[in-house]
Computed example of a mutant assay.
Amino acid sequence: MDCLFCKIVNNEIPAEIIYEDDHVIAFNDINPQAPTHALIIPRKHIATLNDIEPEDCEVVGHMVMAASKIAEQQGFASDGYRTVFNCNSHGGQTVYHIHLHLLGGKPMGWPPYQDTLKTPV
């Protein structure tokens, strides 16, 4: 399998690991969008949210729990943070191994970006 995140899980390529346990690994995003921008990935390869099976529900929940732990460790849990899953190309997914973005350390606005689609008149 030629999956970038599987290579990180298997220690084939380096990453700045900030959290890991038996189910997930979290590392700093190489293109951060906030003072803390971590990616939390399951050790098991699951390509997209559409590929989650009933037996994967526990690991997906564990990803969210890991985000909470990391936010606490990084010191911004009480101030707040954002978590995001992207799914497929229109959702912004570029690596096809599910990952939860954890962004914190600054106030977050909404919407997160200006939509470039025009609404027909």
Score class of each variant (00 low, 15 high):
residue 83 T to F: 00
residue 111 P to Y: 13
residue 93 Q to S: 01
residue 33 Q to T: 11
residue 6 C to W: 02
residue 5 F to H: 00
residue 19 Y to A: 05
residue 33 Q to K: 15
residue 51 D to A: 12
residue 119 T to I: 14
residue 28 N to W: 10
residue 20 E to T: 11
residue 41 I to M: 03
residue 6 C to D: 01
residue 33 Q to R: 13
residue 102 L to E: 06
residue 79 D to P: 00
residue 104 G to L: 05
residue 75 G to R: 14
residue 13 I to S: 08
residue 35 P to E: 09
residue 8 I to K: 10
residue 119 T to F: 03
residue 75 G to H: 12
residue 44 K to C: 04
residue 103 L to K: 10
residue 104 G to F: 01
residue 33 Q to C: 11
residue 28 N to Y: 11
residue 8 I to Y: 11
residue 97 H to P: 13
residue 107 P to D: 14
residue 43 R to A: 03
residue 47 A to Q: 06
residue 4 L to G: 05
residue 105 G to I: 02
residue 62 H to A: 07
residue 57 C to H: 10
residue 110 W to Y: 13
residue 89 S to T: 15
residue 65 M to R: 11
residue 95 V to Y: 01
residue 58 E to S: 09
residue 12 E to C: 07
residue 106 K to W: 03
residue 19 Y to D: 07
residue 18 I to G: 08
residue 59 V to E: 07
residue 105 G to H: 04
residue 51 D to C: 07
residue 11 N to K: 13
residue 29 D to R: 08
residue 120 P to A: 06
residue 3 C to E: 07
residue 30 I to G: 02
residue 8 I to F: 02
residue 94 T to C: 00
residue 5 F to V: 04
residue 81 Y to D: 09
residue 119 T to E: 05
residue 84 V to A: 14
residue 119 T to Y: 09
residue 67 A to W: 08
residue 80 G to Y: 05
residue 94 T to M: 05
residue 58 E to G: 01
residue 116 T to I: 10
residue 95 V to P: 05
